[in-house]
Nucleic acid binder design. Structure first.
Lengths: 202, 202
DNA sequence: CCCCTTTGCTTGACAGTGTCAAGCTGATAA
DNA sequence: TTATCAGCTTGACACTGTCAAGCAAAGGGG
């Protein structure tokens, strides 16, 4: 699998002051640029301006580096969801919808990162740091669902599955270009979320 | 990345009669067993009982082999959706729901295959055979949506995004273990699909 | 001041990968 | 019988993740 050699424009010349941060930054860049897991440890090292084995000093394995990147991404997503929810007013469904809107916006803005965040089986061993960050993220959604009435007889678990299903599926389809929309994706997302008002209102 | 060496029990001893079919079969086995793209050309070749470069004679590149496997999987999924739709009676929403149920069942039965099928960006170049098979599959869903009334003012495109979003998101969340369900996943899927009846009935 | 340990990174190696370039083998055609 | 040729193998290349060893500099104790 020969390397195409793009994205090597901004190679660092001298060793960076914070190697760990430089590696995380390089990995994020590579993930967002390359769409899939072709992001190699050696490419990260080159981009960060260190030797090919330097990453081993900070991350025991490739999966650990990726996990660290994903954990940070989860925290960003959690922040965005909380901010949108708190800006959405008092109505429980509006707050759930705001949370979902932020989720979709994040997913569409960072498709490659998003894909990896929500396919944990791909990092063979579950990573503690990442699992915690993911848990905090899920909790925000769970709280928003729990705060709504669910007259359809849905349990909180099923309601959460339903709400999450909606946003997760939409991001996956749109960011992979599987569905052709005739309007701004966020507008369609808004419509789809609004369709759930009846299921989440008293 | 050293190989763990499992799944080598059923190595073929002599060269198979139909090498191409043997390779497709080996690739399918490896994908379903390994959950991610660690399925290597060389591992397929070993499993099929041929040399490491034999695949090149049938598939110009690794992506082409994977594409062929996924195209076949798409055809299987399409078949299952059509069968379930035709067994669901006359009501348009029931037929849509049957289609969705078959979709979810397939996704939960073949999680790794499913993941790859619906993440086409991961195979850098779009493959014709696979795109056609995927198109036929999407068409079945599209027809089912088009046959329903959509009083909410949804266009067919938005309705299709909504219906597909539901099943795609559910499969992604459940098969990755991201959501904890207190019942059989297909039962929850049934509930979630049923919630959409109001949006797809006259 | 010198030595000694530790930290942080580098160099080198190994087995694995995808892909390309040859070479071999057996069947079919002339 | 010989020529051709498809179908597969062997060998090589650059790349990968990971491990082992080594080097350079900083810091501390005598």
């Amino acid at each position: 699998m020969p390397n195409n050699g793009s994205l090597t424009a901004n190679l660092r010349k001298s060793r960076p002051s914070d190697v760990r941060a430089a590696l995380l930054d390089a990995a994020t860049q590579l993930i967002e640029a390359q769409t899939d897991d072709k992001v190699s440890l050696r490419a990260c090292a080159r981009l960060a301006g260190v030797s090919h084995a330097a990453p081993a000093h900070y991350f025991p394995t490739r999966a650990a580096l990726i996990s660290a990147v994903l954990a940070h991404a989860f925290d960003k997503l959690t922040e965005a969801m909380i901010a949108a929810r708190d800006a959405a007013g008092d109505d429980p469904f509006d707050r759930l919808k705001g949370t979902g809107r932020a989720y979709v916006a994040f997913g569409l803005a960072h498709p490659a990162l998003y894909t990896m965040m929500f396919r944990p089986t791909y990092l063979q061993v579950p990573d503690g740091e990442m699992a915690e960050a993911g848990g905090r993220c899920g909790a925000v959604l769970g709280e928003a669902v729990a705060a709504t009435p669910r007259p359809g007889g849905l349990t909180v678990a099923a309601g959460m599955a339903m709400a999450w299903t909606t946003v997760h599926g939409f991001v996956g389809l749109v960011s992979n270009g599987l569905v052709l929309l005739d309007e701004d994706p966020m507008t369609t997302a808004e419509r789809i979320l609004e369709q759930q008002r009846t299921a989440f209102s008293g």
